[in-house]
Amino acid sequence: MSASKPTFGPDVLRIDAAEAADRIARWIAEQVLGRLRRRGAVVALSGGVDSSVVAALCARALGPHRVLALLMPERESDPESLRLAELVASSLGIRTVTEDITPILDAAGCYQRRDDAIRQVVPEYGPGFKSKLVLPSSATGQLPLFYLVVESPSGVQKRVRLPLDAYLGIVAATSMKQRTRKQMEYYHADRLHYAVAGTPNRLEYDQGFFVKNGDGAADIKPIAHLYKSQVYQLAHALGIPAEITSRTPTTDTYPMPQTQEEFYFSLPYAKIDLCLYGLNHGVSPRDVAAAIGVEPHEAERVYEAILRKRAATRYQHEPALLVEPVPQVG
């Protein structure tokens, strides 16, 4: 009698976290000290689990004295993010520098340009208003069109569908935040002769959840091969504070509180992880549906959404294009 086929579920993402941490730490040391010939690493600490894990891995690989944690709040950041970033830096024994990027963003017109774009659809938007972008769930079958949620000073909320021009204007202005942070990371990396460590996990890297030449820029990306669920396993193995591992992932980009699920992934990370793994490994939508508690046709829609987003964001992974190769430096 043949053995029954193993049930597809969260266990497919289970890793030996201690072994993975040691292997990644060795790789970081080889790349930073060997290939890149840098003296240490700069990590932008956001108070989230991804940057906390990367900081811990760098500290293990290079020693805490060779890691600089850069904290970069701005006037629309959640103060809790700064507190949690300070908490993890203290727990790892790494140095911190805090750079408030609000004056740079103000001078560049980040907030003004974004608000001007919002006023294309909400003319009354002004001082005291808050906003965020949201997506419908991938499993609903709705077109993946962004909606704008605004909240008036009196607390009244309304949701409007965004025309393309307004959406692009909001995103272009808001992306100044990530690009300004990256500028500060490379300033400190240059002055210390350090490398910049990026913090995307596999889900973010695959689905283009980053700003080109912003948070997508880095010298090393130590966890880009790991699904978000696996990053949490590493976090527990590395002793990341529970306040961080129990916190719902957020973007901390817009004035209103915003989860990564409602902004970009449209499903909780544990479910979208299984969908991405299933798609990558040829698992049928029916088996994925049973694992995440949806109907098979809904899982098919998630597969389609992943493929659409992967294709739409391919540009973000492209290096600068050359007319002819330059083999002497390539």
Score class of each variant (00 low, 15 high):
Pro64Leu: 02
Gln207Cys: 07
Tyr277Gln: 04
Val171Ser: 08
Pro153Asn: 04
Ala89Leu: 02
Ser90Trp: 07
Ala55Glu: 12
Val156His: 05
Ala117Gly: 02
Arg14Gln: 15
Gly128Phe: 03
Arg66Cys: 09
Asp165Ala: 13
Ala197Asn: 05
Pro319His: 05
Thr251Ser: 13
Ala299Lys: 09
Gln142Arg: 15
Ile306Arg: 01
Met256Lys: 11
Leu148Gln: 08
Tyr232Lys: 12
Asp215Val: 00
Lys221Gly: 08
Gly208Glu: 00
Val294Asp: 03
Asp16Cys: 09
Pro249Glu: 04
Ala173His: 04
Gln120Ala: 06
Leu92Cys: 05
Phe8Cys: 09
Arg60Met: 05
His236Ile: 09
Val150Trp: 01
Asp115Ala: 08
Thr250Phe: 03
Thr245Val: 12
His225Gly: 11
Ala235Pro: 14
Met176Arg: 10
Tyr205Val: 01
Ser138Pro: 13
Ala20Glu: 14
His236Pro: 06
Leu133Pro: 07
Ser52Met: 08
Gln233Lys: 12
Arg308Pro: 00
Tyr125Ser: 00
Pro249His: 09
Val326Ala: 13
Gln316Phe: 01
Cys275Pro: 08
Gly239Tyr: 14
Ala44Ile: 11
Leu70Tyr: 05
Asp106Gly: 03
Glu261Tyr: 06
Ala55Tyr: 15
Arg35Thr: 15
Thr102Pro: 11
Tyr125Asp: 01
Lys212Tyr: 08
Leu274Ala: 07
Val283Thr: 06
Pro319Lys: 05
Asp287Gln: 09
Gly214His: 02
Gly34Pro: 07
Asp115Asn: 13
Arg247Thr: 10
Arg113Leu: 01
Arg37Asn: 13
Gln328Leu: 11
Ser52Gly: 12
Ala299Gly: 06
Val149Tyr: 04
Ala17Ile: 06
Phe210Ala: 04
Glu324Thr: 13
Arg286Asp: 09
Pro73Ser: 07
Thr180Ala: 05
Gly141Gln: 11
Glu86Cys: 12
Ala197Ser: 10
Met176Thr: 01
Ala291Cys: 01
Lys130Met: 04
Ser138Phe: 14
Thr96His: 06
Leu105Tyr: 02
Glu324Gly: 05
Arg286Val: 07
Ala17Asn: 04
Glu262Gln: 15
Leu322Glu: 09
Gly293Ala: 00
Leu164Met: 10
Gln120Glu: 07
Ala189Leu: 01
Val134Met: 02
Ala166Pro: 14
Ala21Arg: 04
Ala44Gln: 14
Pro255Ile: 10
Ile240Ser: 09
Thr140Tyr: 00
Arg202Asp: 00
Ala270Ile: 03
Ser229Met: 11
Ala299Glu: 00
Ile118Lys: 01
Thr251Gly: 04
Thr259Phe: 14
Ser91Thr: 15
Val294Gly: 03
Lys182Phe: 03
Glu151Lys: 10
Val53His: 12
Leu92Phe: 04
Leu307Asn: 04
Ile240Gln: 08
Asp22Trp: 00
Pro327Gly: 08
Tyr111Gly: 03
Arg83His: 15
Tyr194Gln: 02
Asp50Phe: 14
Ile104Ala: 12
Tyr125Gly: 05
Gly239His: 12
